[in-house]
Design a protein around this nucleic acid. Structure first.
Length: 497
RNA sequence: GGGCCACUAGCUCAGGCGGUAGAGCACCGGACUUUUAAUCCGGGUGUCGCGGGUUCGAGUCCCGCGUGGCUCACCA
C-alpha cells in the first residue's frame, strides 16, 4: 500500500518480501507516529452479536466495539473490514470523509489479524448487511504473523492441536465445541449440586495409585524424597469421605493414565465420580440416566443426538442387560453355566487368546469386550460383571462370582462404570491380595495394596453406590467429535523436532 | 510397538516415465467512496519434513530418521 511504499527504503525487512518483516516494519511505523501498536484497555459498549440482534434499537446509534480483523476489502477512499469478537462477526465501514486524512491513512496500515477497537454508527448497507460506520478507531494489537486462509480454514490436524489458538481463531465450529464442553461440565455440576451432592477435591498425587486398573505416571517429591503417582482414579479417596460421614460426594477432575494414546484415550482426561451412601447400583443406574439426559437436554435442548452417522437417544430408561445375557446372545456361549475347562475351550473356539487357568468370569469378560461392547450403539447398561475384573465392587448375594457392577456403553465404547461398593474390609483385603498376586505375575495394571483404605473400611462404610463417567467421552458424543483430541483444548503431543 | 498413509509458498492443495517448482486465497505495488470468497492491472514470496544414497541431473527412485493421521496391539 501507499504507506509501505513510503517505508520501502527505511526498513530492510520490507525489502525481503517477507510478510513477518513487513508487519514488523509496520510496528515501527506505528511507534514512529507516537502510537503503541499494542494498545491499552478499550471500553466496549456492545459486542458484535448484540448489534445484529438489537439492530432495530441500535440503528443510527453510536457504539464502541473491538475485535480481530478477519477480512479487509479496500475500495480506495472507503474500506470494509470484518471483525470478530467472542460473540461473532460484524462488518465495519470506513469512509475517508468520516475519518479524515490521518486516520484513514493509519487504517491503511492495518492487516488481517490485527486487533482493533472502533467507535461508529450502526447502519445497514445497500446490500442489507448490518454494519458499523466508524468515526474513529485504535489499534489494540498488531498481528505479526498472517492468519491461516479464510476460505478453507486450518485443516492440518497437527497444527490445529499444537497451535489451538489458530484453530479457535479460524474454525468457528471448534469454538462451539469447547463452549459446549464448558456448558456440559456446568450442567453436570448443576444436576448433582441440586440433588445435594457435595463437590470435593482429593489429591492428584498419590503414594499408592488405586481405584482403577491402569499404569500410573510416576513423579518424585524432593523434600520428602519419595516416589508419588499421579492419580488414576478418585475412587478410594471419595469412599474414605463416605466413611468419614459425607453421604453424597462427587469429584470432577483430571485423571492421568500412562497408557496408549488413541482417538478414545488421552493420557490426561476428565472424569466425574459420584458416591452416595445407603444407595446401590440400581440407584446409580437411575442417577446416570438422569444425569446424562439432563446434560443433553440442557446443552442441546434434546436427548437425541447424531454421533458419526448413528442416531443416539439418551432419554431414559436405557436398555438394561446382564453381561452374561449379552454374551450369550452374541456368542451362544453361556459362561455362567459351564465348567472352567469348557469356558476356556469355548473362548478359544471364538478366537480369544486365554490362558489354561482362565476363569469362567474372565473368559466371559473377554468375550464381552470382543463381541459385544463395540456393537452397542444406543446407551446400554451392561450389568453384573465377574468378580475377577471388579476388585472394588460388592459381590452379588445370589452368585459369588459376580458383582453388583454395571457399565454404560454407548457408540461402542465405555461411557460410565458403576457399582454397589464393596464395604466388607475382609473381602476388600482379599481382593487387593488377589490383585497384588496378579501384579507379581507381571500385570502392572493390577491394583496395589492400599492398607489405609482397608483400615478405613474397618471403621465401617455404609452401603454405598458409586459411579464414574468419562467426561471427555460424553463431550465427544454430545458434540459429534470423532476424536478425544477434538474435545481437549491442548491434547498431549510429542514436541516437534 | 506393528502395518498403511501424509509431509511441496503464510494457508488449502496440484505436480504422468527423473530434466530450471505451480494454482487459489493471503501477501507486495497500482486503480477504485455501500463491498462481502469485492473487482481490475502488475508481482511468486519456496531448506519440496530432516539426513544419506543412486544418477550427468532427485519434489519424484532407494535407505534411515522426525512429526502427524488411520488401523491393529495395548487400554475397566
Amino acid at each position: 500500500m501507499k504507506i509501505m511504499d513510503e517505508l520501502g527504503g527505511q526498513f530492510e525487512g520490507a525489502e525481503l518480501g517477507n510478510e513477518l518483516a513487513h508487519r514488523k516494519a509496520k510496528v515501527e511505523e506505528w511507534r514512529s507516529r507516537g502510537i503503541d501498536p499494542y494498545g491499552s484497555k478499550f471500553v466496549r459498549t456492545h459486542c458484535a452479536a448484540e448489534i445484529v440482534e438489537d439492530f432495530s434499537e441500535l440503528e443510527g446509534e453510536e457504539v464502541s466495539i473491538a475485535g480481530r480483523i478477519m477480512a479487509l476489502r479496500g475500495h480506495g477512499k472507503a474500506s470494509f473490514l470484518d471483525i470478530v469478537d467472542a460473540s461473532g462477526r460484524i462488518q465495519l465501514y470506513a469512509k475517508h470523509d468520516a475519518l479524515g486524512d490521518e486516520l484513514y491513512e493509519l487504517l491503511g496500515m492495518m492487516d488481517i489479524g490485527d486487533i482493533i477497537g472502533v467507535t461508529g454508527t450502526v447502519f445497514r448497507t445497500r446490500r442489507g448487511e448490518i454494519s458499523v460506520a466508524i468515526s474513529s478507531f485504535r489499534i489494540l494489537s498488531k498481528a505479526l504473523r498472517p492468519l491461516p486462509e479464510k476460505w478453507h480454514g486450518l485443516r492440518d490436524v497437527d497444527t490445529r492441536y499444537r497451535q489451538r489458538y489458530l484453530d479457535l481463531m479460524v474454525n468457528p465450529e471448534v469454538q462451539r465445541t469447547f463452549v459446549l464442553r464448558t456448558k456440559i461440565i456446568s450442567a453436570i455440576r448443576e444436576y448433582l449440586d441440586s440433588r445435594g451432592f457435595l463437590e470435593v477435591e482429593t489429591p492428584c498425587m498419590h503414594a499408592i495409585a488405586g481405584g482403577a486398573a491402569a499404569r500410573p505416571f510416576i513423579t518424585h517429591h524432593n523434600a520428602l524424597d519419595m516416589e508419588l503417582y499421579l492419580r488414576i482414579a478418585t475412587e478410594l479417596h471419595l469412599k474414605r469421605l463416605i466413611v468419614g460421614g459425607f453421604e453424597k460426594v462427587y469429584e470432577l477432575g483430571r485423571i492421568f493414565r500412562n497408557e496408549g494414546i488413541s482417538t478414545k484415550h488421552n493420557p490426561e482426561f476428565t472424569s466425574i465420580e459420584v458416591y452416595e451412601a445407603y444407595a446401590d447400583y440400581y440407584d446409580m443406574m437411575d442417577l446416570t440416566e438422569g444425569l446424562v439426559a439432563y446434560v443433553a437436554e440442557t446443552v442441546l435442548g434434546t436427548t437425541e443426538v447424531e454421533y458419526q452417522g448413528d442416531k443416539i437417544d439418551f432419554a431414559p430408561p436405557w436398555t438394561r442387560i446382564t453381561m452374561a445375557e449379552a454374551v450369550l446372545k452374541e456368542t451362544g456361549v453361556d459362561f455362567l453355566n459351564i465348567e472352567q475347562t469348557e469356558a476356556v475351550a469355548a473362548s478359544r473356539k471364538l478366537g480369544l487368546k486365554v490362558s489354561d487357568d482362565a476363569t469362567c468370569g474372565f473368559c466371559m469378560s473377554e468375550a464381552y469386550e470382543e463381541f459385544v461392547e463395540s456393537r452397542l450403539v444406543q446407551p446400554t447398561i451392561v450389568m453384573d460383571y465377574p468378580i475377577e475384573v471388579s476388585p472394588l465392587a460388592k459381590r452379588r448375594a445370589d452368585n459369588p462370582n459376580l458383582t453388583y457392577r454395571f457399565e454404560v456403553v454407548c457408540a461402542g465404547r465405555e461411557l460410565a462404570n458403576a457399582f454397589t461398593e464393596l464395604n466388607d474390609p475382609e473381602d476388600q483385603l482379599q481382593r487387593f491380595s488377589a490383585q497384588v498376586a496378579q501384579r507379581e505375575k507381571g500385570d502392572d495394571e493390577a491394583h496395589m495394596m492400599d492398607e489405609d483404605f482397608v483400615t478405613a473400611l474397618e471403621y465401617g462404610m455404609p452401603p454405598t453406590g458409586g459411579m464414574g463417567l468419562g467426561v471427555d467421552r460424553l463431550v465427544m458424543l454430545l458434540t459429534d467429535s470423532p476424536s478425544i483430541r477434538d474435545v481437549i483444548l491442548f491434547p498431549l503431543m510429542r514436541p516437534k523436532e
